[in-house]
């Protein structure tokens, strides 16, 4: 890794700090939140930010800060799991398509195209309406959504690198397909994949927010930023901070991952 260059890259540093901060909040939320995330206080409904409730309370008198912090768990869980699903299947499909070529490639890639042609969020809505809303199904739906993107990157990397002489030389020395893929091709296409993963991460979190906003994502009582945003909407006049704070947190996380991805891309694409 080119840590020295990464550390000097501004987008990377800003992105990493934002994500780092959110990660710290998530770890903290596992042990401590100022209030219970579902603890209602009917005497304090829609309270504005104040020392006892830093970010105010919602329409049931729940502490917004506590709920947001608790929501980081859902956000990271969804991001990590859906990217992991997309990465695993995407790399697998892309690698086979790119390495084998011919009509294997043709069939797999037309499948991926069919999936890309579908607006991702529609697909997710469809899956969730068929299999029912909930955390698990949301993750599966978002994971499936991100497969084609990874498959495309992996495929083009494989097609490019399998023609390189060092790959041919390894074949001539008796290396099998697994060795070629794991040792010779994957390390060379790692950086575009890392970039894509960080961008997909924010995409998944955003999509989850969208689904939950529509009531199809994570179900109560699990806290979710998307659902909080949807719950905040009716009170946009009475309690604007509720919408603003929730929206900003989502923005910060998405921005963080995008900056992280941009930074890595800058450093790796400039020098080969």
């Amino acid at each position: 890794m080119k840590w020295k260059q990464l550390v000097r890259n501004k987008p990377f540093v800003i992105g990493a700090s934002l994500i780092g901060l959110l990660l710290m909040l998530m770890v903290m939320s596992l042990f401590y939140t100022p209030y219970g995330p579902n603890e209602m206080n009917t005497a304090m409904r829609l309270a504005h930010p104040q020392p006892s409730h830093w970010w105010g309370t919602d329409n049931f008198g729940r502490d917004i800060f506590s709920r947001i912090v608790e929501g980081t768990q859902t956000a990271f869980l969804i991001g990590v799991s859906s990217v992991a699903i997309g990465l695993f299947f995407g790399l697998f499909i892309g690698a086979i398509a790119g390495y084998r070529g011919g009509w294997t490639d043709e069939v797999l890639m037309r499948l991926m195209d069919a999936k890309l042609a579908f607006p991702g969020i529609l697909l997710a809505i469809m899956l969730v309406s068929v299999f029912g809303p909930g955390l698990g199904n949301t993750i599966v739906a978002l994971g499936l959504m991100s497969i084609p993107a990874f498959a495309r990157i992996a495929r083009s990397g494989f097609i490019q690198y399998k023609e390189f002489n060092f790959v041919k030389a390894a074949v001539a020395r008796g290396a099998g397909a697994t060795r070629i893929i794991v040792h010779h091709i994957l390390p060379n296409i790692a950086s575009p994949i890392i970039v894509a993963a960080s961008l997909r991460f924010s995409g998944s979190i955003l999509a989850e927010a969208g689904l939950s906003y529509l009531g199809l994502g994570v179900q109560p009582p699990d806290p979710s930023w998307g659902r909080m945003l949807s719950e905040a909407q009716p009170f946009i006049v009475n309690a604007p901070w509720y919408v603003l704070i929730t929206g900003s947190v989502i923005t910060v996380m998405v921005l963080g991952f995008n900056l992280l991805g941009d930074g890595i891309r800058d450093v790796y694409d400039n020098k080969s």
Binding site: F164, F166, R173, A175, H183
Partner: peptide, 26 residues
């Protein structure tokens, strides 16, 4: 086989030692 282009005939992510040892491992 030894190829023409010395730039593309070695895996850029691996050390020289790794590249030379690989055939022996295989």
């Amino acid at each position: 086989i030894v190829f023409q282009d010395p730039y593309s005939s070695l895996n850029p992510k691996k050390t020289i030692g790794w590249t030379l040892e690989e055939p022996l491992i295989i």
